[in-house]
Structures are given as C-alpha cells and as structure tokens.
Lab assay of single mutants.
Amino acid sequence: GTLHLNGVTVKVPSLEKAIKAAKKFAKKYNLEVQVHGNTVHVH
C-alpha cells in the first residue's frame, strides 16, 4: 500500500499496516484518514 501523510508519500508493505499507521498519526495530529483503493491519505 501507499501512505500519504500531509504530502509525504510512504510505501508500506501491507495496506493494514498503512491504515494502522495512518490512524495513529491522524489521532495524534487530529487529522482525517481516507482510504482510496490501496492508498491511504492523511490530511
């Protein structure tokens, strides 16, 4: 999967790991997580 954090793109081995990391990051910075196919966006 691919993880987008505020314009930074990170390749992640699995989508589940990407979503987990995204949710952790989003919670910390009070951001929103959106999943588009195998790409996770945090903004």
Rank of each mutant, 00 (worst) to 15 (best):
G1E: 10
G1N: 07
G1H: 10
G1I: 15
T2V: 14
T2D: 06
T2N: 11
T2A: 09
L3I: 13
L3R: 03
L3Q: 02
L3S: 02
H4W: 10
H4T: 07
H4S: 08
H4N: 07
H4Y: 09
H4G: 04
H4V: 14
L5G: 04
L5C: 15
L5D: 02
L5A: 05
L5M: 11
L5P: 03
N6T: 05
N6F: 15
N6D: 06
N6R: 08
N6H: 14
N6M: 15
G7S: 05
G7D: 05
G7P: 02
G7M: 08
G7F: 10
V8P: 02
V8G: 05
V8T: 09
V8R: 13
V8K: 12
T9P: 07
T9A: 12
T9G: 04
T9S: 11
T9L: 14
V10D: 02
V10A: 04
V10G: 03
V10T: 05
V10I: 15
K11G: 06
K11P: 09
K11T: 11
K11F: 13
K11M: 13
V12H: 07
V12K: 04
V12Y: 15
P13F: 04
P13V: 13
S14R: 05
S14Y: 08
S14A: 05
S14K: 03
S14D: 13
S14E: 04
L15Y: 04
L15A: 01
L15C: 03
E16P: 06
E16Q: 10
E16D: 10
E16W: 06
E16G: 08
E16V: 12
K17Q: 12
K17D: 12
K17F: 10
K17V: 12
K17L: 14
K17I: 13
A18N: 00
A18H: 01
A18M: 10
I19S: 00
K20C: 00
K20S: 10
K20D: 09
K20Y: 04
K20V: 08
K20T: 10
K20E: 13
K20N: 09
A21W: 15
A21V: 11
A21P: 00
A21L: 15
A21E: 07
A22V: 15
A22K: 01
A22W: 07
K23L: 13
K23W: 07
K23Y: 07
K23F: 08
K23I: 14
K24Y: 11
K24N: 10
K24R: 13
K24F: 06
K24V: 06
K24Q: 10
F25Q: 03
F25P: 01
F25D: 02
A26G: 06
A26H: 01
A26S: 02
A26P: 00
A26R: 03
A26F: 06
A26T: 00
K27Q: 11
K27C: 10
K27H: 05
K27T: 07
K28I: 10
K28D: 09
K28T: 05
Y29A: 05
Y29F: 10
Y29H: 13
Y29S: 03
Y29Q: 04
Y29L: 06
Y29E: 03
N30H: 12
N30P: 06
N30K: 07
N30L: 06
N30C: 11
N30Y: 08
L31C: 13
L31N: 03
L31E: 01
L31I: 05
L31G: 04
E32Q: 10
E32G: 04
E32D: 09
V33N: 00
V33C: 10
V33D: 00
V33T: 01
V33W: 05
V33P: 00
V33S: 00
Q34P: 00
Q34S: 14
Q34A: 11
Q34N: 07
Q34C: 15
V35N: 01
V35L: 07
V35S: 01
V35D: 01
V35F: 05
V35M: 04
V35I: 10
V35C: 08
V35A: 03
H36C: 06
H36D: 12
H36R: 10
H36P: 01
G37T: 04
G37I: 07
N38K: 09
N38F: 08
N38G: 06
N38W: 14
N38A: 06
T39E: 14
T39Y: 10
T39Q: 10
T39H: 15
T39R: 08
T39P: 02
T39N: 11
V40Q: 00
V40I: 13
V40Y: 00
V40A: 03
H41W: 10
H41P: 01
H41V: 14
H41E: 14
V42T: 02
V42M: 11
V42E: 02
H43P: 01
